[in-house]
Design a protein around this nucleic acid. Sequence first.
DNA 1: CCGTAAATGTCGTCG
DNA 2: CGACGACGTTTACGG
Lengths: 235, 235
Amino acid sequence: MPGGGRVTGYRASVRIVVARCTVNYVGRLTAHLPEADRVIIVKADGSVLVHADGGSYKPLNWMSPPCTLREMESDPLTWEVTNKAGERLVICIHAISHDSEHTLGIDPGLVKDGVESHLQALLAEQLDVLGIGYSLVRREYPTAIGPVDLLCRALDGLHVAVEIKRRGEIDGVEQLTRYLELLNRDPLLAPVEGVFAAQEIKPQARTLAEDRGIRCVVLDYEELRGTSDVGSRLF
Amino acid sequence: MPGGGRVTGYRASVRIVVARCTVNYVGRLTAHLPEADRVIIVKADGSVLVHADGGSYKPLNWMSPPCTLREMESDPLTWEVTNKAGERLVICIHAISHDSEHTLGIDPGLVKDGVESHLQALLAEQLDVLGIGYSLVRREYPTAIGPVDLLCRALDGLHVAVEIKRRGEIDGVEQLTRYLELLNRDPLLAPVEGVFAAQEIKPQARTLAEDRGIRCVVLDYEELRGTSDVGSRLF
DNA sequence: CCGTAAATGTCGTCG
DNA sequence: CGACGACGTTTACGG
């Protein structure tokens, strides 16, 4: 291995450093941060975040786990973070104004509600929102290019493929279009109609969808959740 | 304004708190974090990050700027972060094990190299990589649904639309397909061929592209940069 | 491990 | 401010 330095192994703690530093990343792209004061967080898994005082939750520069941090006994102090893919993050530390370490333990994790999978579960129970008399063939109906959110059968026996989004944009229409093209090749299913269902449908997505004969349905999450049995069971 | 509490205005500093806390977010979705020790970062712009000791750079929970932090003098200590859109992040702090504040100043910002715009600039100078004798009509050729990366003319006078990606996936093929459909409606341009150029092209994207008569070209960034005049000028 | 799709995506740019 | 595409997207899920 080139160079010396101390390799920091697994510590069950975060290290928080505030320091004047320059940072260089070479990997999927090349990125350079000029000398300035920043917050550096080293997590237990070796991952490193370099934050400025502003911007959103995204660090200016970072290294994702799994990776290895090596602290060089050079002047200026240099930290080198590397991973298997050959990406390198090098932090030159010119002056440290804060350095502390904290033991946090394993986090119990985040509980979410209101994401697409919930919409799907609720809709599968209330297909009338999509069309009177619809019956469910399958959730996550598998195709060669991925699963269709809902496959239904209308009163007239025709099949209906439903793509569900929280926010309906062009990508979602394209996705449904690919599914429909494939499903319509299956003589046992064809003809298959398309329904694009979302809490919010962008005008351009609606235009594209309707231009392709895909019906758009705007969903009311609160109403779906209020009416449903699962609504209370799930959360 | 409901409730009391001290509203923390603009401070030109980050505050770093390590504390046992529970966190609730209500906004675009609902998310709950059970009681545990975490790192809480409050940036100068009022934005808040709640990090665990692990995972990647994404916080467990957060609020993006612009937003307002109100510290309630309750027991347990409660921080309420809100924004214009009505999103709320509420942090109950049960025990503080670290609390410090640091002045960082404005960050000079990140310098990047190696992204799509550079690929586009390099390719525009070396069109032979795409096809012998190609000439450039325009970079960012405008259409009603967005700009085509490169519009070229081949030796035989036919037009060629080029979509450039760092990583070529299905989305990029769809995008180019939409452009081609539009461009081919223009009698002054039609017929327009498609070329999908990327540093890496996923098999499924290649299959879809070739199925649609779109030619795929794999780019070598280092070679493009080495050969080019701009290569040295740009960086 | 690959491939696909979701995301509180975020971030920049352009109209 | 909205629309749109890029992103070191990251992250989760399924084969």
